[in-house]
């Protein structure tokens, strides 16, 4: 099976952030492989280890994003394409258009995405790309298997889980509930340097100007109304438990 996994470099949401004049500032410019994409890479590796095949990762981003590509290669992906952009980031629909034009002349069985970006939680790129490429797809997959030329997806729906069979080629977007992504071994890290990585300049893809025009824009950032810590009760559990129960009734009026 030939897997393409779309991976994204995202800021580490655990790192301290602040807002200055409406701009988002990260104290350290720490970036990571989007956790959902790491799960997508892991699952593609597991399936190709079982059924044979190849995993190629694709990333759109600036030069520094190579670090993230290396991470996926160190996990075990076989090769990579880096579509290099200048500094700025785009919205999901622009990324989807760029990916669509990249995939136009490619052969594959499965394209995997993460179900969402960890920093923006947009969750749009996957299904947009499927639509552009006219592929059957499923999102929010929590388990994958391959059988009889089909990709079987367990999808977490609103109430329960849906078991869906997709004909190949198809697209799937992955939840991190699907697996624990492997931590690259030292051998993996060493090999990653020698694996093929092709860099394509964004301009070389000849994408329609209009497709690169974002229809949405972030105009600023703002603190959330701060939620102050309330009362903390330490002491005899018997006492404190009853006290809080009464407060919920009398003070908060929520029981």
């Amino acid at each position: 099976m030939k897997f393409y996994v779309c991976i994204k470099q995202v800021p580490d949401i655990d790192a301290p952030i602040q807002i200055k004049n409406g701009n988002l500032i990260q104290d350290t410019d720490r970036t990571v492989l989007n956790a959902y994409d790491a799960s997508a890479v892991e699952e593609a590796l597991v399936l190709t280890e079982k059924h044979g095949g190849e995993v190629e990762v694709v990333l759109i981003g600036p030069n520094q994003a190579k670090e993230t590509i290396r991470k996926a290669l160190a996990m075990g992906a076989h090769k990579a394409t880096h579509i290099e952009t200048r500094e700025e980031s785009y919205d999901s629909s622009v990324y989807a258009s760029i990916l669509a034009s990249f995939f136009e002349d490619k052969d594959y069985d499965v394209i995997s995405c993460g179900k969402q970006s960890q920093d923006t939680d947009a969750g749009l790129t996957g299904s947009m790309l499927a639509e552009h490429l006219d592929l059957p797809y499923s999102t929010n997959a929590v388990a994958l298997s391959a059988q009889n030329g089909q990709l079987r997806v367990k999808r977490q729906g609103d109430a329960g889980q849906e078991l869906i069979a997709l004909p190949l080629p198809c697209l799937v977007s992955c939840s991190n509930d699907m697996n624990e992504p492997r931590i690259p071994s030292l051998k993996g890290i060493m090999q990653s340097k020698r694996k093929p990585m092709e860099t394509i300049a964004l301009d070389a893809l000849e994408i329609d100007e209009s497709a690169l025009e974002a229809k949405t824009a972030v105009t600023g950032y703002r603190e959330k109304p701060k939620r102050e810590a309330g009362q903390k009760f330490e002491g005899e559990p018997e006492e404190t438990a009853r006290q809080v129960a009464r407060l919920l009734d009398e003070e908060a009026n929520v029981v």
């Binding site: 960890q118 939680d121 229809k215 105009t219």
Partner: peptide, 15 residues
């Protein structure tokens, strides 16, 4: 929209 694991809010426009 809440972003960065809902730590902060972003203001957005769609046209």
């Amino acid at each position: 929209r809440p972003v960065m694991a809902a730590k902060i809010l972003s203001e957005n426009e769609a046209r």
